[in-house]
Amino acid sequence: MLQADGVWFRHGRDRPWVLAGVDLAVGAGEVIGLCGPSGGGKSTLGRVLAGHLRPDRGRVTVDDAAPRPRRAAHPVQLVLQQPERAMDPRWTVRQVLAATGADDAAIAALDQRLVVPSRLDRFPHEISGGELQRVNLARALLARPRYLVADEISASLDAVTQARIWTLLLEHCREAAIGVLAISHDRPLLETVAGSVVDWTPSPVGETPA
């Protein structure tokens, strides 16, 4: 169970609270959709769950323990909307994938629908958005996470590419019993891919922790 327990977060002392007492739970192998308008703090929650940001109050637990990823991949991996920002522009796709600690054999053994072998030695700006997003997903899967946070991963893709990447994601996560939190503004999409959809309400302005 990936669990957020009364999480509060703000980007600095004098800034408003972005997350105000958020509770959320994603079970192993479960797909939960988080639906809400953009700019409402959904992405911040994703980053807190994945350990990019530390909550100011409350806690995030993975299988009832606080994750301590010293020198090991975090059990919650994050796939972001813009894959080109999530990869060092100076690295080839192969280097990006190898940064997970995967060896050449593991990279070669990847699902070819995720990463086309002929693209391995290209730079991120040389391949299309859909392909790049699949590389992004492949990297997250190579880190062998227990949970995956997919933050608007198909927001800038066309419908065919969107359907393709979600089909792949769901297939791989089901196989490895990875729990998924799907974040999007697109309700029809979430209703299609997720077992249940949670509505996100942005935290009211001026709220403070008790």
């Binding site: 066309d158 419908a159 065919v160 359907a163 393709r164 089909t167 029809p188 299609t192 891919v193």
Partner: peptide
Amino acid sequence: PYTRALWQALPGNGFSVAEGV
């Protein structure tokens, strides 16, 4: 065929991935 694939791939219209487009 690509237009049709786009329409059919929309969530709510089957979310299907047509091969070969």
